[in-house]
Amino acid sequence: MALINFLKPKNKLEEGGRTAAPVHEDEGEPEKKCPNCHKDIPLSRLWSNGLVCTCGYHFRMKARQRIHMVTDKGSFQELFSSVKSGNPLLFPGYGEKLETMRSASGEEEAVICGEAQIGRQKCCIFVMDSYFMMGSMGSAVGEKIASLFEYAADHRMPVIGWTVSGGARMQEGLLSLMQMAKTSAAIKKHSDAGLFYIVVLTNPTTGGVTASFAMEGDIILAEPGATVGFAGARVIEQTTKKSLPKGFQTAEFVLNHGFIDSIVPRREQRKLLAELLKMHRGG
């Protein structure tokens, strides 16, 4: 099994977001309603603006769209693409769910890993995909991320990761939980080798991912308005029987409480990441 499969640009790349979200198909150009400002935005405008509304609302984005947007043209080489989960606990309905997800998303798993260049700086990247089981972490996601950090440590490369996750994938039970330890161990090894890891938290980053590799970066960034938290807001409301403060568990909330370095709009990430990579060259 070849570890590196050169990724041909997929045609469905450009249309992914259109099929994934409800679109008003009236006459004229298709539009999408912004949940923040409630305006109908022409899709072409949304696309040219990296799926960000003029009001600043960040629409969710498929992993391959993000890779396409953030990496230098033609520089991305996918790694570990053949790693995928089976149904190790024979959890009812999970095998079928995986099959449905795979055909609907065109992806094998909830994370894509590879090598790329950003502003001509070489790096390893992982990008999670909310369109695949809400970016939940099972064995394959943990295996791919751990393998990527090991690969990056072997090749003395920095890692940049974009997280989006509902948490550990319950259909793989304890095996999913153990991925939190497995990825943390690989990140520690990479870190102890003096290597650089930047993580960008996107909407939403929660549960077991927040309690592992999302919070283990040397630099932790987040997209504006992204939900970032450990426990689900509804669970907290039920547990505490209190109403939650405004803006609870947003990127702005975790910034104010000291848990992330900066909030960076999607369109500004590429430039900042290139600059940060440059400042850590050789490390």
Binding site: M1, S82, V83, K84, S85, G86, N87, P88, L89, L90, G138, S139, A140, G142, E143, E172, L175, S176, M178, Q179, A181, K182
Partner: peptide
């Protein structure tokens, strides 16, 4: 733990 490949054991 949870080492998976395309030849998943289960």
């Amino acid at each position: 733990m949870g080492a998976v490949t395309e030849f998943d054991i289960a």
